[in-house]
Design a protein around this nucleic acid. Structure first.
Lengths: 153, 153
DNA sequence: GCTTGACCTTCCCATGATGGGAATCTCCAT
DNA sequence: ATGGAGATTCCCATCATGGGAAGGTCAAGC
């Protein structure tokens, strides 16, 4: 039984998709366990470590925050986890994603509509600028720009 | 002809929708012109200043970055602007918005689909966790999670 | 006039996730 | 032994925003 192969941070990065810089960061904020170190202080990662990093990478690809991933990792490790908890976390995130997407699409729609009415030639007249300047009634389609109080989540 | 009414930063914030904190910040980064100051150093804003702030606020509500807004403000002030420039800037932004929205929606779709197949009860079996853990073939719907290299823009 | 409270000022720090780069040390192959 | 690749830590930057401290100012009420 030969010992498990240990890899450098670079190899772990390549294998997991997480940059070496981020691997160190995740360790620093306590998202992942510190790996073993050589006498010189070099980090060495076991297969399980790389799996964990790949898990984090996939979760990031789904837009989970590092805090959410912290909970996901705990659930992953918990053999007695109720899948309901995972599902709830996931669906909450889905709702957030969809809300954000809808917001961006609204912005896009509004702006695209304004652009539709802009000649886009050498002349200065421009409904886009007018709408931003708050020209009353210039382009009622963008009326909701006034009073918009929130952009983020 | 009475002088134009000048308002404090708080009033300017209320009238424009931009927080006092941000007004100072926008001034500091050179997005807006410094307003007149009282002898004691208090900022006082004229109507035009408030209009500019409201312009910035509306542009932010459409998701423009402060750098883009810088260009929009310049175009707004430029009486000889070609509307084509405004339109181009706007449409570039629309494309970015739509790309971002599509990305978020993809994430949402993927995750929602995984959640669909999760019982969500007291038992630990969970296709969501399996997909994140990279269980091969566990849920082919999320196969593209592997190799996902980009999240942001 | 003096107190009080609301408002202003500047300055520093924090967020979230990521990257860049410097200075320094270590490993391995020639 | 030397050189180069790669590791370490540390600081700084991004982007837009907010929190809060320490201190100055103004106006209203007594």
């Amino acid at each position: 039984m030969n010992a498990e192969p240990l890899v450098t941070i670079r190899r772990a990065a390549e294998a997991s998709g997480v940059s070496a810089k981020m691997i160190r960061h995740y360790e620093q904020i306590g998202l992942i366990r510190p790996p073993v170190r050589s006498e010189a202080g070099y980090r060495f990662y076991a297969g399980a470590d790389v799996q964990t990093l790949a898990f984090v990478h996939r979760a990031r690809a789904l837009g989970f925050s590092l805090d959410e991933i912290r909970r996901l990792l705990a659930l992953w490790q918990d053999r007695d986890r109720p899948s309901a908890e995972v599902k709830a976390l996931a669906l909450r995130h889905v709702a957030a994603l969809e809300a954000k997407a809808a917001l961006l699409q609204d912005m896009g729609r509004t702006l695209r509509h304004l652009a539709t009415h802009c000649h886009g030639d050498h002349r200065p007249e421009c409904p886009i600028i007018d709408a931003l300047a708050g020209a009353e009634g210039a382009h009622p389609d963008a009326a909701h720009l006034d009073g918009a109080e929130q952009i983020g989540e």
